[in-house]
């Protein structure tokens, strides 16, 4: 016969239960607060974006500051992009050559490298480098302007800081990054030709012919279009993080750091979306 378990008399310690309920309540409250901060942050971001769009199309465009930013974002980034572009092409060629050689398809190397540089590697690597240099630069600059009350000073002297600081930087980044990407693409292809010539001898004309035999306008166009979005995202995130930095000097570093992280993440996400759209359309 099955023996029934004997039940013990259970005494409930109300003090412990109360303590657990309180702890649960505190945790729930903290989570709610965190969610609140998160959604407020999104709201802030959207409002800042809307204000930037509004000021972009309002009268009184700060053309001189826009040109200065184009110089700083475009010209001052050229050395870094030159080195990166050249090395990108060389590395891609040196890494791909043995695999193609196994299949006896070394003649396809210029076309393969050119296609991967123009379609993907050039835009993404250049944009990530720019997210690091330009995004952090803008974030730190505006962050320190905020901390030292320069943005407030601008506001009280009847200048709209978003029009002067944000619109000019976002537009300069949107315009300059596609140019930097095309420049990096060109140097990448040049680097590839140089790398091929390390182990063999191919004239530039032949290399150029082989490279662009497999590339057409529709390879080039989507890649260029997405770089405008990369530029806008990098400029905007840098400005947003700097402009909304806290009051202490520590927040300048935080602004620069989070601008790089968020801008890099956005570049990857935009790239994924762009690739999906291109795939659907072509």
């Amino acid at each position: 016969m099955k023996k029934f378990a004997s039940f013990k008399k259970v005494t409930i310690n109300t003090h412990i239960v109360k303590k657990h309920v309180i702890r649960l309540g505190e945790k729930t409250y903290k989570k709610t607060q965190d969610a609140n901060v998160f959604f407020l942050g999104i709201g802030d971001f959207v409002l800042f974006f809307w204000e930037t769009v509004k000021e972009t199309f309002s009268l009184g465009f700060e053309f001189k500051e826009f040109l200065r930013q184009c110089y700083l974002i475009g010209y001052k980034t050229l050395p870094l992009i030159s080195v990166t572009g050249l090395i990108m092409g060389m590395v891609l060629t040196i890494q791909s050559r043995p695999v193609l050689a196994d299949f006896g398809a070394v003649s396809l190397l210029p076309g393969m490298v050119a296609a991967s540089i123009i379609r993907e590697m050039g835009p993404v690597i250049t944009a990530l480098i720019c997210a690091g240099k330009i995004g952090s630069g803008i974030g730190a600059e505006l962050g320190s302007m905020k901390v030292s009350e320069q943005i407030d000073a601008m506001e009280v002297s009847s200048t709209h800081p978003i029009r002067f600081l944000v619109v000019t930087r976002v537009l300069a980044a949107t315009l300059m990054i596609p140019i930097l990407v095309m420049y990096a693409d060109a140097l990448g292809i040049l680097g590839s030709w140089a790398a091929i010539n390390i182990k063999g001898s191919v004239s530039f004309v032949l290399f150029f012919h082989q490279a662009f035999r497999v590339i057409d306008f529709m390879d080039f166009l989507p890649a260029v279009i997405k770089t405008f979005f990369f530029g806008a995202a990098i400029g905007f995130v840098g400005c947003y993080k700097g402009y909304t930095a806290g009051r202490g000097t520590e927040s300048v570093g935080k602004a620069a750091n989070s601008a790089v992280v968020l801008a890099s993440l956005l570049v990857i996400i935009i790239d994924l979306i762009a690739v999906q759209i291109t795939d659907m359309l072509l």
Binding site: Q150, A153, M154, S157
Partner: peptide, 30 residues
């Protein structure tokens, strides 16, 4: 705000501009 002058505790001069450009900044706009 054009009729109000505000001297900030830190001075809040624009770092990237010379003193002349700092003074020109509100003058051009106002």
């Amino acid at each position: 705000r054009e009729k109000i002058g505000f001297l900030f505790q830190s001075g809040a001069l624009y770092d990237s501009m010379t003193i002349k450009q700092n003074l020109e900044f509100p003058l051009i706009r106002i």
